[in-house]
Every structure is written in structure tokens, then in C-alpha cells.
Amino acid sequence: MNDTRNDSHIIDNLQAPVDAELLDRLHQRLEQQAEHADLLDVAYTTVDSPVGQLLLAATPRGLIRVAYANEDHEKVLATLTHKVSPRILRAPRRLDTVARELDEYFSKRRQSFDLDLDLSLSHGFRQLVQQHLPEIGYGQTRSYREVAELVGNPKAVRAVGTACATNPLPVVVPCHRVLRTDGTLGGYIGGLAAKTTLLELEAA
């Protein structure tokens, strides 16, 4: 009989409404303690934007990932856990500057980003291409061939396409400014609608 009462009490507690404010305070405390103990290797948050919800993730070195919703944020976080560190936590305050600069960009008050970047998810030629992409100015476009020439390897057009397609920092590292030689959009990690939105935003 007592067991039945205990079970009923536990069920009642589990069904009680969750205090969102309390959970938020507990999470903030967890975030502070993790930072204080140097246990936070990857901080992340999500922000809304004209191209959908974006996942932002940063290491102590800088912004390491910007992910579109179509990439599946849960899968992106799992990949970061595997490739970077399992010590990962939602910590919006660590990404306040990134979120602010993105908001300024989308509201046409910013044309370039002033952020520390962690490019460790890319290697070799891909990373080289991604390092050079910010040289394509706001409102400008280049062809895959022109980017290949920019990085000193004119024949590596396909490799440039792969580097753009696997760019872990879209929007901030502007692979959306790279088009096919005939001027058509080509592929884009966030989808062609997102690429069109970004190009139209910068052209306006």
C-alpha cells in the first residue's frame, strides 16, 4: 500500500508544471560554474535570422560553427562533441558578440565581421580557401574559378566548390558570394533560397 502511495507521489511530481524561470536560473548557474572551472570547451546557442534559425558554436579560440536548420542542429552538436570536445553546453552569453554582429549584418548595419574564428574543422586546401573567402567584399561575387586563382591554384575549381560546400562558418565566411562561371548560383549549404536571400540583402 505504501509503495502505491509513493509511486503516486512520484508520478504527481513528474507531472507538475516545470518552472521555466527556475530552469533558466539553474542553467545559468551551471554555465557559470562550468566556465569558472574551465570545463566549457564548446559554447553554443541559436538565433533567429532572415535565413532561418542559426546554430552558433564557439571554442575559446573563436567561432567554430554556424549551422542552418536544414543541417539538423542536433547532428551538428553531436559532430562537435565527437570532433572537438564532449564538454559542450548551451551558453548564449559566450556568443553575444557573434549574435550582435549577425543582427547588424542582417539589418544592413554591418558589411564585414570582426570575430575571432576557429577554422580547425577544416584542413589543408579547404581551410586555405575558407581563409580567403572574406576577401570577396560585401555585395561582390566571384566565380569558383576566380577563387581558385585567388588561392594560387587555378586548376582547383572543383576543390574550391568542395571547400565552399563544406564551409563550417556560412554567412560569416561568405561562401554565398561564390557563383558558377556562368553566373548561376551553384550549391549552398543552407539551400539556394538562403543563398539568394543573402545575395539580395547585400545587393540592396
Rank of each mutant, 00 (worst) to 15 (best):
A69W: 02
L192M: 10
S49T: 06
L121M: 11
N13W: 08
K155Q: 14
L185P: 06
V151P: 12
R65Y: 07
S85F: 03
G161M: 15
L23D: 01
R126M: 05
D12N: 15
G139Y: 13
T81N: 11
D7E: 13
L199W: 06
P17C: 11
N13R: 14
E71V: 01
L54C: 08
V66E: 05
R110T: 11
D38H: 07
Y68S: 08
S85L: 03
E200S: 12
L198C: 14
A37T: 09
V66A: 04
Q15P: 00
L80G: 04
A37E: 04
L26R: 02
G183H: 05
L30C: 02
E71P: 05
T59S: 02
G137T: 13
V147R: 05
N6Q: 15
G62L: 02
Q28R: 14
A193D: 15
T45G: 06
D72C: 02
G152D: 10
D41E: 10
L95H: 12
S122Q: 07
E71N: 06
F113E: 11
T196S: 08
V51I: 15
R65E: 08
Q53C: 00
L192H: 15
A37P: 03
I11R: 12
R94W: 01
R93D: 02
L121Q: 08
G190V: 12
K108P: 03
Q28N: 02
Y138Q: 04
R90H: 03
E35A: 11
P134H: 07
A194C: 12
A204F: 01
A194F: 14
N153F: 13
Q28L: 05
L201V: 00
L150K: 12
D48W: 01
R90W: 00
R5I: 15
L30I: 03
T81L: 03
P174L: 04
M1D: 14
R109K: 15
H73C: 10
G183F: 02
T166N: 10
H123A: 15
S85P: 03
V129S: 08
Q15R: 13
E149P: 07
H73G: 09
E74R: 04
Y144Q: 07
L23F: 00
F106K: 05
E149R: 13
R110N: 10
T166C: 05
L54Q: 00
G187A: 10
R177N: 10
V66L: 11
N6E: 15
A203R: 14
F125T: 11
G137W: 07
S120F: 03
Q140T: 02
A203F: 08
D96V: 08
L121H: 06
A67T: 09
T196K: 14
A20M: 09
F106E: 08
A20C: 03
Q140S: 09
E135R: 09
V98L: 04
A43R: 05
V160F: 01
H176W: 10
E35I: 08
L133Y: 06
V98W: 03
S112M: 12
V151F: 09
